[in-house]
Computed example of a mutant assay.
Amino acid sequence: MSSLLYVCVRPEVGAADAEHASFRRALGVDVVDRLDLLDEPLDPARLAGYRGVVVGGSPFNVTDTEKSPAQLRVEADLEYLAHRAIDARIAVFFTCFSIGVVTRMLGGAVTTQTPESASATVIRTTEAGASDPIFGPSAPALTVFTAHKESALALPTGATLLATNDVCPVQAYRVGTHLYTAQFHPEPTPRDFADRMTFYRTTGYFDPEEFDLVQGQVLSASVTEGAALLHRFAENFG
């Protein structure tokens, strides 16, 4: 059994398998256990023995007007994880879709006004981010991959902003000492992200007619600090 758990919330099996591999590589450990929330509801006993959890991305959106029972259950399970992290009972690094779940749980608003298409983008660490054990060594700025339709409208109550940029002001925040959230995707290499695009070619993250162009831009990007964040997360909580 690993001390780290990857929580999957992707319906696409191929994309989920690849994301698991990306997290394992970025965390820098040989074994990262996996829990697929779309296949298996979260049993609190399942978390026993783990010090750290990473939550992958999803095509789900908190702002979706019609949600399946599976999505509603996934969101409830992620909220449970967030509460455990706030209580410092386990460390959790939420990414992409799940930052919206945490933001809403904290009473914050989630908006579709600040989307970012599939691309590499520069984010800036805040003063708090520069002194954070996970984000600090990457200060003052890092290049990461983004692809999202929604984001936090503003920093929710009780959270500490760690990273921002002009397009999407809430890029990452921390609650307490054990809960981290990121709007971006910290785990993929350029090759990983380019391959992931094939699963979401017609889902609105980029113009499908410009697939080759966008994929080429992704492959030529220099992106390493996202993985460095996760490696430090594993060092601190693995």
Score class of each variant (00 low, 15 high):
Pro115Cys: 10
Glu12Cys: 12
Pro208Val: 06
Leu213Gln: 15
Ala48Leu: 15
Ser117Glu: 15
Arg73Asp: 14
Glu150Met: 00
Ile99Gln: 03
Glu75Ser: 09
Ala221Lys: 02
Thr198Tyr: 10
Asn236Leu: 12
Asp166Gly: 10
Gly238Cys: 11
Thr157Tyr: 07
Ala128Val: 06
Ser220Lys: 05
Arg174Gly: 01
His231Phe: 00
Ala234Ile: 05
Gly158Tyr: 08
Arg191Tyr: 09
Asp39Trp: 06
Asp166Lys: 07
Thr121Val: 08
Gly108Val: 02
Met1Gly: 14
Leu142Asn: 01
Ser117Lys: 11
Cys168Asp: 01
Ser2Arg: 03
Gln113Tyr: 01
Phe93Glu: 00
Ser68Asn: 13
Ser2Cys: 08
Gly216Leu: 11
Leu162Cys: 05
Ala128Leu: 09
Ala15Gly: 09
Pro169Leu: 10
Thr95Arg: 02
Asn236Cys: 12
Asp212His: 11
Thr160Glu: 14
Gln71Met: 14
Arg124Asn: 11
Ala234Asp: 05
Thr103Asp: 06
Phe97Asp: 02
Ala154His: 09
Gly56Glu: 01
Glu187His: 04
Glu150Val: 01
Ile90Leu: 08
Asp33Ser: 13
Ile134Gly: 01
Arg73Gln: 15
Phe94Pro: 00
Thr202Asn: 14
Thr114Pro: 05
Ile123Trp: 00
Arg25Val: 08
Gly56Ala: 06
Thr224Glu: 10
Leu27Asn: 03
Asp30Asn: 13
Phe233Ile: 03
Phe145Gly: 01
Gly28Asn: 11
Thr143Lys: 12
Glu187Gln: 10
Thr121Leu: 08
Phe211Leu: 13
His148Trp: 07
His20Gln: 12
Thr157Met: 11
Val62Met: 05
Glu12Phe: 05
Thr126Glu: 01
Gly108Leu: 02
Leu5Phe: 07
Asp207Thr: 15
Thr63Pro: 01
Phe211Arg: 07
Ser58Gln: 04
Pro59Asp: 13
Thr111Asn: 11
Asp207Arg: 14
Gly57Glu: 04
Thr121Asp: 07
Thr112Pro: 03
Leu213Asp: 15
Gly107Ser: 14
Phe193Cys: 10
Arg25Ala: 10
Leu229Pro: 00
Ile99Trp: 02
Pro69Met: 09
Ser131Ile: 12
Thr111Ala: 11
Arg10Asn: 14
Phe94Leu: 08
Val54Asp: 03
Lys67Pro: 01
Ser151Gly: 13
Val54Phe: 00
His83Val: 13
Leu213Gly: 10
Val55Arg: 04
Phe23Ala: 02
Thr95Leu: 07
Ala194Met: 06
Val167Phe: 04
Tyr173Asn: 04
Gly52Leu: 02
Glu40Cys: 15
Leu42Val: 11
Pro133Thr: 12
Phe94Ile: 08
Val170Glu: 03
Arg89Pro: 04
Ala85Glu: 02
Cys96Arg: 04
Arg124Leu: 12
Leu42Asp: 12
Glu116Leu: 13
